[in-house]
């Protein structure tokens, strides 16, 4: 599957995401980085908006990246049903862009945290969750300083009612004060998914878990069918 991984000035995990795309594709090297000024996504079957500190996280995490030319193209790609995965900073960018509901606030304890943790797969209907069962637990590292998922009460209710929760932190493992333990959500259509934890850092055995591969493999059959 041909993924495009966005690269902003200040991105950190874009090569890791590219690496995960390749491993998920059985080592086939057909994915590439997409420079933030690019607007032509033709030929790409999926987009990853990666983690890091795009534009230094100045103003607010993700607030500047949403204005990049590449994000305009990603919005069109998503509107056409293309699968878009936002990880950490990428999740923040997608929320800032309005492609996903809610917002990410500074962690309750204000400190950066980095640790391996467990997620519970939600009920959302998304190609990214194709290889996972609702209620299944997966081990994925999280690392962020602004990962506290927030939505006003009526929006939160809507997200829950429409089954847009993709992942929750396992009971007792919510690291940041996220509402309803939410670690990741999808858009209504399910083709855009954002999460704070880092599936691209759970793809090789030496790192302790390969549970993250499922997210990168999920959309493959659909993309293959479309192609």
């Amino acid at each position: 599957m041909k993924w495009g991984v966005l690269q902003f000035p200040g991105s950190c995990d874009e090569r890791d995401a590219l690496n995960a795309c390749q491993i998920a594709g059985g080592g086939v090297n057909e994915s590439r980085l997409v420079w933030h000024e690019e607007t032509d996504l033709s030929g790409l079957e999926g987009i990853v908006v990666p983690g890091g500190f795009s534009y230094g996280d100045y103003l607010r995490a993700g607030a500047i990246a949403r204005f990049s030319p590449a994000m305009t193209a990603v919005a069109e790609f998503a509107a056409a049903g293309g699968p878009v995965l936002g990880i950490c900073n990428g999740f923040q960018v997608l929320c800032e862009s309005g492609l996903l509901p809610g917002a990410l606030l500074t962690n309750e304890r204000t400190r950066f945290i980095c640790r391996q943790g467990e997620l519970v797969v939600g009920e959302a209907d998304s190609p990214f969750l194709a290889g996972l069962e609702a209620g299944q637990r997966i081990s994925i590292p999280f690392k962020h300083q602004s990962g506290r998922f927030f939505a006003p009460p009526d929006l939160l209710e809507e997200i829950e009612a429409k089954n847009q929760v993709a992942f929750r932190y396992a009971p007792g493992q919510n690291p940041n004060g996220s509402l309803n333990d939410i670690a990741g959500v999808t858009n209504e259509a399910g083709n855009v998914l954002g999460l704070m934890p880092h599936p691209e850092h759970a793809v090789e055995a030496f790192g302790g878990s390969t549970d993250g591969l499922a997210l990168f493999r999920g959309p493959a059959p659909a993309a293959g069918a479309a192609a």
Binding site: C12, D16, R111, R115, E200, E204, F206, G207
Partner: peptide, 24 residues
């Protein structure tokens, strides 16, 4: 725990899990 110990996808042993850090 306040440091990103895994970015770069090389970390085999991170701080505190072994006497020495190991990178692939």
């Amino acid at each position: 725990d306040q440091y990103d110990s895994i970015v770069g996808s090389r970390t085999v042993h991170r701080a505190g899990t072994a006497d020495a850090a190991v990178l692939n």
